[in-house]
């Protein structure tokens, strides 16, 4: 996983509430056995016409947002299906940070596993950042994870919360599995304590 420390980048505004993971990456693109290559299908139904041509008014099709690395989104972003293809598609497009008033739980969690930082900020703050984002390449936002602040182009800073453990993992690009395996002795001990009636799933 790539580290996340500070990011200064163009932010794309997507002022729509309840953007579900079916919108982020429709089910027909889930038939891959890889994590990469989904960026071109990100937001497919919002981004392309039926004939595959781009919808000119969709934010990521506008020249100034083609290299956006931050997404400023509406309430309840990432609701619906648990598909990790949603953060994979965002990441493959180049998005490393999503800022919204609220997120659905599974999506929020999945972001951290892929080096994407999801940031919850109050509605009025998001509205300001949405305004900045509307300026496109003229206004880059800075996200400083170490200091836990989002910096507006005018220098104004907004503090955000992040779980300390997740922050540590993101800053250092740490793989959860490696960390959990340090608890192997405790897992062994737990398994040894399980009641005898607990059935096992065995063979055909």
């Amino acid at each position: 996983m790539d580290k996340f420390t500070t990011l200064t980048a163009v932010a794309a505004p997507l002022n729509v509430a309840n953007v579900d993971t079916d919108k982020i990456i429709p089910a027909r693109f889930l038939k891959t056995i890889k994590r990469t290559g989904l960026g071109k299908s990100l937001f497919a139904d919002m981004r392309y016409n039926a004939d595959g041509s781009e919808k000119a008014d969709f934010v990521l099709n506008q020249e100034k947002y083609r290299k956006a690395q931050i997404l400023v989104a509406g309430d309840n972003f990432g609701c619906g299906s648990s598909r990790e293809h949603a953060p994979w598609a965002l990441l493959d497009f180049g998005i490393r940070c999503v800022i919204a008033p609220s997120f659905a739980d599974i999506f929020f969690n999945n972001c951290f596993k892929n080096g994407i930082l999801p940031i919850r900020l109050p509605e009025d703050v998001c509205a300001k950042l949405m305004d900045d984002a509307a300026l496109g390449t003229n206004a880059r936002l800075t996200v400083d994870l170490e200091r836990q602040v989002v910096v507006r182009p005018n220098g104004e800073e907004f503090a955000f919360n992040v779980d300390p453990f997740r922050k540590h993992c993101l800053l250092n690009g740490l793989d959860d599995i490696g960390l959990t395996l340090e608890h192997t002795a405790a897992i062994d001990a737990y398994e040894a304590r399980q009641p005898a009636w607990q059935p096992k799933i065995h063979g055909a």
Binding site: R35, S82, E84, I106, K113, D176, I177, T180, H183
Partner: peptide
């Protein structure tokens, strides 16, 4: 995500992403 279904049995059941699938396969936690 619809793993929540199994909660009807009186179990704590929830959906996870693929990284967590790998995590559970490797560590059972």
């Amino acid at each position: 995500s619809h793993t929540s279904t199994h909660g009807a049995m009186g179990a704590l059941a929830f959906g996870i992403g693929t990284s967590e699938v790998e995590h559970v396969l490797a560590t059972q936690t």
